[in-house]
Amino acid sequence: MNRLKLDRSLRRDYLTYAFVIVAYVILQVFSGTKGFSPTLRGQLVPICAYVVMAMSLNLTVGILGELSLGHAGFMSVGAFSGAIAAAALQNAVPSPGLRLAIALVIGAIFAGIVGTVISVPVLRLNGDYLAIVTLAFGQIIKSLIENLYVGVDAAGLHFSFLKPHITLAQGGRMILNGPMGIPNIGKISTFLAGFILIMLTLFIIFNLVRSRAGRAIMALRDNRIAAESVGINVTKYKMMAFVTSAALAGAAGALFALGQNTIVAAKFDFNTSILILVFVVLGGLGNMFGSIIAAAALTILPEALRGFADYRMLIYAVVLILVMLGTNSPQLKGLLKKLVPGKKGEEV
């Protein structure tokens, strides 16, 4: 039975991988045709970024069971460190693909470092207090970046905090202009890169969850005292989940930033954190497949509703309410259970 259960959850993992691949192929084929609207084409990279954001937050909220309200903060760290790296390497690394890959890795590393630093105070807290501190963290990151100025010249990167004046050598230029953000980003993110990042994220999360460490993390969520009594190192495993989640969000942030013309710190505010939390809750706590669907659908929806400009947010809200009511109805759940084998309400 244990084996059978393992097989069932593994099968769900493979189905999720398969779904992402099929969705990618279909979208890739259709995006070349005339019927595919340019707005939707422009949304492909942000959708990938938000899907990764939702999955990474789901690791903290769904698998670890801690409510984090500052996930956009990690996205912001990844977005700015990734975009600065890409701009600084413009001449050194001419290949846009390689530059993007480096930017994603740098975004993940920086967000991972910030995640490690803040996990020290944050993971001493539980429940509401943890939520409050992560919320504050998101705001702090936003304020810090709004006051950060970065320029580049032949000598390398120059940083300034609060003071916008940086003296640069001949041929140097400003990359990050405080509250004005980073203008003229090269837009090197591609749908293919987004797809690869999603697959990589799935691979990392599924492998973590199915490992010994993953069981320890879920045991902590289920019952902290029991977990401690069987000898689980609470700090270590909480930190592992939290930092992985932060690093993935950093990579998503870099992908997002490099798909935009301009990014400003104000974009990654509290509202964005909540938006991502909505994806997670709507898709189901601990359910990665759900996160993918919810993030993709809710990113497209406001754009698709652009025609009804005045009623757009109203319809958005109504859809949210309907989905929540719908997914809670026993009839619909019964139907889903019949349609999706192995989906028996268990997590992940």
């Binding site: 039975m1 045991a219 289920d222 019952n223």
Partner: peptide, 16 residues
Amino acid sequence: IFLQMTVQENLEMGAF
């Protein structure tokens, strides 16, 4: 105990 795990999984956690 870990309410969402099976009996056997609970026991296996004991050998963590």
